[in-house]
Structure formats: C-alpha cells, structure tokens
Amino acid sequence: MNSISTKYATLIAMVAVIVIAPMFFPSSFYYRIGALIFINGLAVMGLVVLIGYAGQVSLGHAGFVGIGAYAAALGPIYLGLPPVLGIVLGALISGSLAWLIGRPILRLRGHYLAVATLGVGILIYMVLNNEAQLTGGPDGMPVQAIGLKEFLKSIGYSVKGSVMWYWLAAIVLLVGAVIGLNLHDSPTGRALRSLHDSEIAARTVGIDVARYKLRAFVISAVYASVAGSQLALMNKFISPDVASFLHSVELVTMTVLGGASVIFGALVGATILTALPQVLTMFEDFEHVLLGLIMMLVMIFMRAGLVPSLIKLIRRLTK
C-alpha cells in the first residue's frame, strides 16, 4: 500500500464509521458519547503528530485542552466574543504558549521531557483551579451556547443538541484528520519522522531539529485546544478537571492504544477509552482494575498499538 492510498483509505474508513455508527444508536445518548469520542479523537490526533511522528512525549496536554475550554467559556464574558470565536482565541493562546515554552522544554529528552510537560500541565491546571474569581474554581463554570441549534430551528430544522454535536464534532475531526494525513508526507512530516528515528542523523542531513520539534508541539497544542473548546461548548459547562494530570494520561493512553503512528489509531484509541468507562459502569467496582489491565495487556502484547498490529496481522493472513 503506498502512502496516497493510506491517506484515502483512512478518510474513507473514518467517514464510513461516522455515517454508519448512528444507524445502531438506540437513543440520543449515544450521539453524545459519539461526539465525545470525536472530540477526544481530535486531541489524540494532535498527539499522534507529537508522539507518533516526532517521537516526543507530553504528559501535560490536558493543559492545552483546559486553555481551549476556558477560552470558549471566558471569551464571550470578558471580551464579548461570540462563543465560536472562543475556539480561535483558545487556539491562539495555546499555540503561542506552546511556542514560548516549547523551545526550552523540547531540548529535554525522554523522562526529563515527560516531567517538564507534566509540570506545565499541572501549572495550567492549578491556575484554572485556584483563580476562582475568574474561572469559578474547582466547581467549574457555565458556558454560553453557540446558538447554532436556535439558528437551525429558526430556518425550520429542529435537531437535538446531541445529534447536532455528533455531526459538528465529526466534521472537525475529519478536517483534523485531513491536516494530519497531509502533514505525514509533507516536508515537515518527513523531517519529524526522521528526527524520531535519530536526531543526530536528522541533524546530519541538515534538518533543524529544534524548529521541527517545536512545530509538532505547537500543532498538537492547537489540536488539544480546539478539542477543549468544543467540549466546553457542547457541555455548556466546564470544570478544571479537563486539564488534570489524569486527563493528560488518558489522552496519551488513547494515542498509544490506537497506535501512535497512524491517524486512524486516534479514532480507535479515543473510541475504546471513551466508551469503555460507559460499558464498565456495569462492573462498577471493577472499572479501574479492568482499565489498568487493558492498558498493560495492549502495551505488552501489541506494542505498536491496535491499528498497526491489526494491519500487520491482516497482511500476514492474506499473504
């Protein structure tokens, strides 16, 4: 399979999943889960660029999700922005912040990079949690609706909020996928993948390693931020938990579970880890045990993640 067909295969598979899934939804609650999956999937796609392409780890990306979420919440209140522009504001802030802190942080390697990004995430979380007069503190705050539902109603379409968000988040996810897929084979993508394999080798052939790492970091921060804004606007409520360390870990787990090197893996990883807790509530007490077990088993037996491992298996069987 050459890379162009990989790109279209991914997009066709994603569109198919998005269109076919609702046929099996027994209630509108499932649309909400679906929208949540797509939103998480978008943040995870950003991490595919950072972890899968560039090979850099971040344990603080939920911080950028938090910035996006609170930009969408606070922009309309303090700047009089329409909520949709809150998404742009969040992306701008997250992107600039990532650009500012990225250069010193990305000099670090492996576990040192992990602890530095962890620190950044925790600092963002603490600001959101402690500046209660601005953010409502740990109790969270309400978020203005985007008003699309009312607009649709006024022109004669009456849709449920969850159904509308399902399609909105799906469209944004597809846009994110197209950008991510194009990036893979662009000069930037090639540079990132080469420095993933060996920074020294990449530098030897004239790649500005620091600049490309920074670029991947900024891109992934913007993806996370847009996901956060959508989450706030869909739920019409936001609390600092979206920026917590555990959420950062969840995002990284989704990335690696689905297969960090492939864009489609983002959707698979997000689906499993978003839907799983809903399924596992049946097992109540065993939820954590099963989640931990799944994380360990997949990483031990399918190191490349689900999607690449399955593709490999299918290829071996069809040969």
Partner: peptide
Amino acid sequence: SVVSLIII
C-alpha cells in the same frame, strides 16, 4: 519504548 513503559 519509553512511552509504552510509562503507559504500562
């Protein structure tokens, strides 16, 4: 990889 071990 480092990331896999962190997840484990």
